[in-house]
Deep mutational scan, measured.
Amino acid sequence: RNLTILSLPEDVLFHILKWLSVEDILAVRAVHSQLKDLVDNHASVWACASFQE
């Protein structure tokens, strides 16, 4: 069985995303439609995003 980041529970993905910069979140968003939906549909992803580079 192949395990990917998409195999992780949504709460784990949120925990990972909250540590990323805006640039990295946008890069993750571009990788897969499921990740794009996760980022686009949950404001909590952006609430913790680091807007300082």
Rank of each mutant, 00 (worst) to 15 (best):
S44I: 01
E53L: 06
T4K: 05
N41R: 15
N2K: 11
L26N: 06
P9M: 00
K18V: 07
C48K: 09
R29D: 05
S33K: 09
D37G: 13
Q34P: 02
I5H: 02
L38T: 11
V31E: 00
L17A: 02
E23W: 05
V28D: 01
F14G: 09
D24Q: 03
L3T: 07
L20N: 03
L8G: 00
K36A: 05
L20G: 05
L8H: 13
I5C: 04
D37V: 13
V22W: 12
R29V: 06
Q34M: 11
L17G: 06
L13G: 04
D40F: 01
K36W: 05
D11R: 12
R29S: 04
V28K: 03
H15D: 08
L17I: 15
K18G: 12
I5K: 03
H42E: 02
A27S: 13
A30W: 01
N2H: 13
F51S: 10
I25C: 06
L8I: 06
W46R: 13
R29H: 04
A49M: 06
C48Q: 10
E23H: 08
L20A: 04
L17H: 04
H15I: 10
A43M: 08
S44M: 10
L13R: 05
S7Y: 01
N2L: 04
S50H: 09
L20K: 01
V45H: 15
P9K: 02
E53A: 11
S50C: 11
S50K: 13
W46Q: 11
S44R: 09
S7I: 07
D11I: 07
L8Q: 00
V45P: 13
W19H: 15
S44Q: 09
L6I: 04
N41Y: 05
L35W: 05
S44Y: 07
V31F: 03
L8N: 03
L38P: 00
D37K: 15
S21V: 05
S7Q: 10
L38C: 15
D40A: 00
D37L: 14
H42N: 08
I5Q: 00
Q34V: 12
R29K: 02
H32R: 02
S7C: 09
W46K: 09
A43V: 05
T4Y: 01
D24S: 01
I25H: 02
S7E: 10
N41D: 07
S21H: 09
D40T: 07
A27H: 10
V28C: 11
W19S: 13
D40G: 02
F14R: 14
H32S: 14
W19P: 07
I16Y: 05
W19L: 15
L38N: 01
V45G: 11
L6D: 05
D11P: 12
S44A: 12
V22K: 12
I16H: 00
V39C: 10
L13M: 11
V12A: 02
A49S: 14
H15R: 15
A27P: 07
K36I: 00
L6N: 04
V39A: 09
V31Y: 00
H32E: 04
I16M: 09
A49Y: 09
E10C: 05
A47E: 08
D11F: 02
V45K: 15
L6C: 04
I5L: 14
T4G: 13
